[in-house]
């Protein structure tokens, strides 16, 4: 009797577990498939691509498509690969990330530890900036960048990304500092420390987790941006996402799918690397940005 009962309950349970795992693995394969296709296509020759199919493993591995994507593929009229655009992206992403994170940290510090009459309202006002579709600022911004003389320049892109990233960085730091007891700042004030001293000595040493989250979030957002890049830059100034799109959609000559895929991977590599190394913080940023934002 007892044995029977055990079998009866263990049977469906085991089956249930099997179904769950099967579903999970199937889903994992679905998510990994495009990556696999990209990588395998990028190391195939064009002949093999034409003869074989999507999921066939490469017969022989060649890196020539990678070499071409990096240094000699055509993006529009220019045929020097993505190399230049890659470094373009680096050159505006790094300062934009650092500046927006620093300002966000100070803003969050003020909005939690030094609240004043109306500061909550100002925060709300600022947060609405997270929600607007950026299309609504593109035309005026194009004009303004021209007036400021920083149209189609690294400075211009840094400026745009900082301005429209501030709402997010402020949100991140504010939500983090909200859980730091305000009494800490009060204690430090009584101890004789001022605004900046409290920030450097007390608050900033607490902040590495949120700095990591913010830097990763901003890096991913700005590196992956296409809209600002395509509107506010042209020619050799373009960031890598714009160059990739041009490369793939260049209609002249033979379509080289392996070069397209290599180029796509090159464009994705920095953010993918960050994801692999610091995925935990990436997810935290995603959920933190969403809960309130």
């Amino acid at each position: 009797m007892a044995e029977h009962a055990e079998v009866r309950t263990a049977g469906p349970r085991l089956l249930g577990r099997a179904v769950i795992y099967a579903l999970l693995i199937l889903l994992a394969m679905y998510y990994l498939a495009p990556l696999f296709v990209m990588v395998s296509t990028s190391v195939k020759t064009l002949d093999e691509i034409r003869a074989g199919n999507l999921i066939a493993l490469p017969a022989e591995i060649t890196l020539s498509a990678w070499a071409k994507a990096w240094s000699s593929a055509c993006t529009g009229v220019d045929c020097s690969g993505l190399r230049g655009n890659f470094w373009n992206s680096v050159s505006f992403v790094v300062p934009a990330v650092l500046i927006s994170t620093l300002i966000g940290a100070f803003n969050g510090y003020v909005l939690t530890m030094w609240r004043f009459r109306g500061s909550d309202l100002l925060f709300t006002l600022l947060m609405i900036g997270c929600f607007i579709p950026f299309q609504v600022v593109l035309l005026p911004m194009a004009q303004t960048l021209g007036w400021l003389g920083i149209a189609n320049s690294t400075t211009g892109l840094v400026f745009v990304h900082v301005v429209y990233g501030l709402a997010f960085t402020t949100l991140f730091f504010r939500n983090f500092y909200v859980s730091v007891p305000q009494e800490m700042t009060k204690a430090a004030r009584i101890d004789g420390a001022g605004f900046f001293r409290i920030f450097w000595r007390i608050i900033l040493p607490l902040s590495p987790p949120i700095i990591t989250v913010t830097v990763i979030w901003q890096f991913t957002q700005i590196w992956n941006d296409f809209l600002f890049g395509v509107v506010f830059s042209s020619g050799e100034r373009q960031p890598i996402t714009v160059a990739l799109n041009n490369l793939v959609n260049t209609s002249t000559g033979v379509k080289e799918y392996n070069v397209d895929m290599a180029a796509a991977i090159i464009a994705a590599l920095p953010t993918l690397l960050v994801y692999v190394v610091a995925g935990k913080y990436f997810v935290r940023g995603l959920t933190a940005g969403s809960v309130k934002g």
Binding site: K186, A188, I190, G192, P205, L206
Partner: peptide, 28 residues
């Protein structure tokens, strides 16, 4: 506050979490 010659003990203690006890006491 810093010029009033006062000291305050808080409900949450408000110790500086990144500093040692020694540093906490000597910070002021």
């Amino acid at each position: 506050p810093k010029d009033r010659d006062i000291a305050m003990v808080f409900q949450s203690y408000a110790l500086y979490p990144t500093m040692s006890v020694r540093k906490n006491i000597s910070f002021g």
